[in-house]
Amino acid sequence: MGSTSAAAGLLARQLKQMKNDKDIPGISCGLVDNNVFEWEVMLMINDDCKYYGGGFFRAVLTFPTDYPLLPPKMRFTTPIWHPNIYHPSGDVCISILHPPEDDKYGYETAAERWTPVQSPETILLSVISMLSSPNDESPANVDAAKMWREDPKEFRKRCRKIVRESLGDE
């Protein structure tokens, strides 16, 4: 039980810090059902982002009770089309959310995977960066990766539609 309360205390401090930090534009966080292990996140994507700029995307971060030793899981609840986001579940596939162990496929180094120095802030900033620069070498959504590589115009068109939908315009 001690590690659970330590994790809860750490998460409460990290949430408070993120709410008070004005240097993180475009990220808003709060608790789901007053549960410190489940955060609702709103990402308001900067217009500089080629594909998702101007969009408002909701997601949930679910933290394990042994956080920060193990990473949280992140799932978009707003529909999103991206090579590194499973479709239709919205689960995010990014290296820093992979457990701190050797990659059985040899694709990632241990340094690219989760370490306890990561935080909700670094996760969300990495996901925003991922939205701008997909990793199509290890896609979670093979169809999105193929479209991104082979038909960038159609990929951009689909993303713009998703951005409009995220704003309630469609």
Score class of each variant (00 low, 15 high):
L125K: 14
D91A: 07
G106Q: 04
E108F: 15
F155A: 00
S133V: 14
Y86A: 04
V92I: 09
Q118F: 13
P134A: 06
W114E: 13
P152G: 08
Q118E: 14
H98Q: 12
C93D: 10
N135A: 03
Q118V: 05
D102N: 09
H98Y: 11
H87K: 00
I94W: 08
Y86P: 01
L125H: 12
P116L: 05
E121C: 00
N135D: 15
D136V: 14
A144R: 03
S132G: 15
I128Y: 04
N141H: 13
N141F: 10
P120I: 04
A144W: 14
P116T: 13
V142S: 11
H87P: 00
E121H: 02
A144I: 11
V127K: 02
E101N: 05
R149M: 01
Q118G: 04
I85Q: 04
S95N: 06
D102S: 03
G90I: 00
P120V: 05
P99Y: 10
I94D: 12
S126K: 03
N135F: 08
D136P: 09
E137H: 13
L97M: 04
S132T: 12
A144K: 01
P99E: 13
P120Y: 08
P116R: 05
F155P: 11
S138K: 13
D102K: 02
I96C: 14
P99M: 01
S95P: 09
S138Y: 15
D103T: 07
S129P: 11
S126A: 11
S138F: 13
K104S: 08
S119Y: 13
Y105W: 12
P120C: 00
S95F: 04
G90S: 01
L125Y: 09
H98K: 05
V92M: 03
K153S: 08
H87W: 11
R113C: 05
Y86C: 02
T115F: 12
A140D: 09
H98G: 00
E108I: 02
T109M: 02
F155L: 01
K153T: 15
H98W: 07
V92R: 02
G90T: 00
D91Q: 09
L124S: 06
L125M: 12
K153E: 14
R113I: 10
Y107D: 06
A140S: 10
T115I: 10
E121S: 02
I94Q: 06
D143N: 06
A145N: 06
D151Y: 11
K146I: 14
V142I: 15
P88I: 02
P88A: 00
D102Y: 07
S89A: 04
P88Y: 10
K146M: 06
I94E: 10
D143V: 11
L125N: 12
T115C: 10
V142M: 09
Y105R: 07
I85G: 06
G106S: 05
S119P: 06
R149E: 09
H98I: 01
K153V: 15
T115E: 15
T115P: 07
D151N: 14
V92S: 05
P99H: 11
T109D: 15
E121L: 00
P152E: 13
S138D: 15
M147Y: 14
R113A: 07
G90K: 00
Y105N: 12
V92P: 09
T122I: 07
N135M: 04
F155M: 03
T122C: 03
